[in-house]
């Protein structure tokens, strides 16, 4: 028998019932942990962009419009080094290509609304990870509001962090060197919480572990962005190819 693929998970059941808060407030509240990762990276980007020769307004425009962390660093780096513009654009898009699987994964839980096309600008890695777990658990009427709140908070935090970095990045990193080192741990902690409920069987556990380790190895080898889809594909391949018997000895 084929193992059912669990799309939603009730393991966050001890969160306050969604009905107690409006959708967008719940989204804002649940996206708060993202800020620990977003703001330090955005400050770094603001700083790097100014050092690459862009002014504050241009730096803000990049963060507001492209809104995709790693590819922004690449874009300003290539532009500053005098690389052909078409190549900088192509590399930016190549890095962001991993986003193609995000919206289809969320689509079954998106109620009909004319807002979704606009909200897709906010579909980052982190918002996807959060939405993939939370949307199936929310009542349908709250989902647009939830996504709006979470995505808007993350977007504004990214823009605000960029502004901080552009205006005061050097002074801040000199004054609080540890803060920039500690706060980004919010991201792995959040991703761990989001992926933890998926460890429901030996088959899922092995596949997820393969994806995590492969991504880790890719990052340590300097292949960060390409490593994400590659590691995910390896994990999925492992899921489909390797069938482990369950611990109690029954057939999977």
């Amino acid at each position: 028998m084929r193992e059912p693929i669990r799309m939603s998970d009730p393991t966050h059941r001890r969160e306050p019932p969604a009905g107690q808060l409006s959708g967008w407030r719940t989204g804002v509240r649940e996206a708060l942990p993202l800020l620990g990762g977003y703001i330090p990276v955005a400050i770094s980007f603001g700083l790097v962009s100014l050092q690459a020769g862009f002014d504050t307004l241009e730096t803000l425009a990049i963060s507001t419009l492209i809104y995709a962390g790693a590819s922004q660093f690449l874009f300003v780096g290539m532009a500053a080094s005098g690389a052909p513009l078409w190549l900088a654009v192509a590399m930016t898009l190549l890095i962001n290509l991993r986003h193609v699987v995000y919206a289809p994964n969320l689509a079954p839980w998106l109620p009909r609304s004319r807002w979704w096309p606009w909200l897709m600008h906010g579909l980052t890695d982190q918002i996807f990870a959060l939405a993939h777990v939370r949307l199936p658990q929310l009542p349908e009427r709250q989902r647009v509001g939830w996504f709006f709140g979470a995505a808007l908070l993350a977007w504004l935090a990214w823009i605000g962090g960029t502004l901080l970095g552009a205006v005061a990045g050097e002074r801040m990193t000199a004054a609080w060197p540890l803060l920039g080192e500690i706060m980004p741990f919010a991201l792995p902690a959040l991703f761990l919480v989001l992926v933890a409920p998926r460890f429901t069987s030996r088959r899922w556990s092995l596949a997820l572990a393969v994806a995590i380790l492969a991504a880790l190895v890719c990052t340590l080898s300097g292949f960060t962005n390409g490593g994400i889809p590659l590691a995910a594909a390896l994990g999925a391949l492992c899921f489909f190819l390797i069938r482990l018997p369950p611990r109690d000895g029954r057939q999977p």
Binding site: R98, A129, V195, T224, I228
Partner: peptide, 14 residues
């Protein structure tokens, strides 16, 4: 299957 694997991969990177 790819959805949870993408989250796992982003965890690995982070």
């Amino acid at each position: 299957v790819l959805g949870p694997m993408m989250i796992a991969a982003v965890l690995g990177v982070s």
